[in-house]
Amino acid sequence: MQFRDLNHFLVEAAPKVLARGPIAVVLAEDAVELVSTLEHVLNLGFRSAILLHAPTVRPPTVLHDNVYYIPNNPHRDDALTEPMNRLIAAAPPGTWMHYCYNAEYLHFPFCENRSVGEMLAFHTEERRDAMLTFVIDLYATDFDANPDAVSLEEAYLDRTGYFALARNGQDGPKERQLDFFGGLRWRFEEHVPKSRRRIDRISLFRTKPALKLQQDFTFNDPEFNTYSCPWHHNLTAAVCSFRTAKALKLNPGSTYDIHSFTWYNSEQFEWSSRQLMELGLMEPGQWF
């Protein structure tokens, strides 16, 4: 269903759509893999998907009735945070939401045979209102066949090279918060601004009054930014993403310096949660 803008959606459809979670919001920066991204979140069990797309991008017309198309300028600084915070404010408190970009694919433990609703119900029972997700860079190996470095059939990832540093606050390290690094942003850091090198996001969360998503993918509630509760480890998930590879290959400032993303620690992505857990890129916590 197409809307003129976010105001139109909030007036005409938001009360009904946002009343039934979990809900996925996809920010389309271009037209790459729009259909596969939307189909992925719907197949995981999200009840609705909201596509925020550039006015110049024609949204797909072959998907289900529970996909909602809203024009949105993807190139302004608050292209994600402004619409997300308005959607958060409009949703009933306690609604689970997920956000990602096009050509990004959420994976959580056992997602092949368990729905996102089942997983979030367990996470809620553990008194958690947010979930840490790691953005795992995917990339194609053949730039001649895939000039934008995107290929679902020949996707590779780094099997090692990930690390975490303490997240510092005014009074020292923040409790149960870390900054995570790795992937293409680490290997090609000279082409990535320092403020964009982290690979951690809180991309699964429950809405509540006054909650705000911030520009650095954290929230204004410090507890939402923690990787686990104080008493044991919790579930984590992964967002498998072509976004960095696509940007590095299409950006004139980096494309001519990069001839391949492949290195000795590259491994073909199997599109499975088992592989991600075995590589230590997400963990099931107490959920078996």
Rank of each mutant, 00 (worst) to 15 (best):
G182K: 06
D30Q: 02
Y139V: 02
R76S: 03
V135H: 06
L52R: 00
A89P: 00
N225E: 07
H123M: 11
N234V: 01
M131F: 03
T56Y: 10
D144A: 14
N113K: 11
R20E: 15
A90M: 07
K212A: 13
T61D: 15
A164C: 05
F288D: 07
K174L: 15
A91E: 00
H232S: 04
C240D: 09
A164P: 00
S195L: 05
L10C: 05
V116P: 05
R20G: 00
I23T: 12
R198D: 03
K212R: 15
F122Q: 13
M131H: 05
L27F: 08
S260Y: 00
G172P: 04
P230G: 02
F205L: 14
L6N: 02
V26Y: 00
S228L: 02
L132V: 04
A155T: 07
T124F: 09
R197E: 06
F143E: 00
N234W: 08
P209T: 08
H64R: 11
D144L: 13
T37R: 02
N102D: 07
F219D: 07
R4S: 15
Y68S: 11
R198T: 13
P74E: 11
V67T: 15
D129K: 10
W231E: 01
E189T: 04
A155S: 15
F269D: 13
D179H: 09
M277L: 06
Q286W: 06
L276R: 11
F122E: 14
W263I: 05
V150R: 01
N72H: 06
N265S: 14
Q170S: 14
T255H: 01
D77Y: 07
R196V: 02
G253W: 00
V239L: 15
P173V: 04
S48A: 15
H53Q: 10
P59G: 11
F3Q: 05
V17Q: 08
M1L: 15
E190Q: 14
S260H: 05
R206P: 15
Y69P: 03
H233L: 15
P71K: 07
H123L: 08
P109R: 01
A245M: 04
T218S: 10
D216V: 02
M119N: 01
V62G: 09
L106G: 00
Y101T: 09
H191V: 01
R176C: 06
T218I: 04
L184C: 10
A13C: 05
L152K: 04
L276W: 03
N7L: 12
E175L: 11
S273C: 07
E29V: 07
E118R: 03
A238Q: 09
Q215M: 14
D179K: 11
F46G: 13
A49Q: 07
V41S: 12
Q275D: 09
I199W: 12
D77I: 04
A19Y: 05
A13Y: 06
H53F: 04
P74S: 04
F108T: 05
P93N: 07
A31K: 09
V26S: 02
L120Y: 03
F217Y: 14
N225Y: 01
H233G: 12
F217W: 10
W186H: 12
L281F: 08
A164L: 05
H40D: 08
P83K: 10
I23Y: 03
T56D: 13
D142V: 07
F3H: 13
W186S: 03
P147E: 01
T124E: 15
V67Y: 02
L6Q: 00
D216P: 00
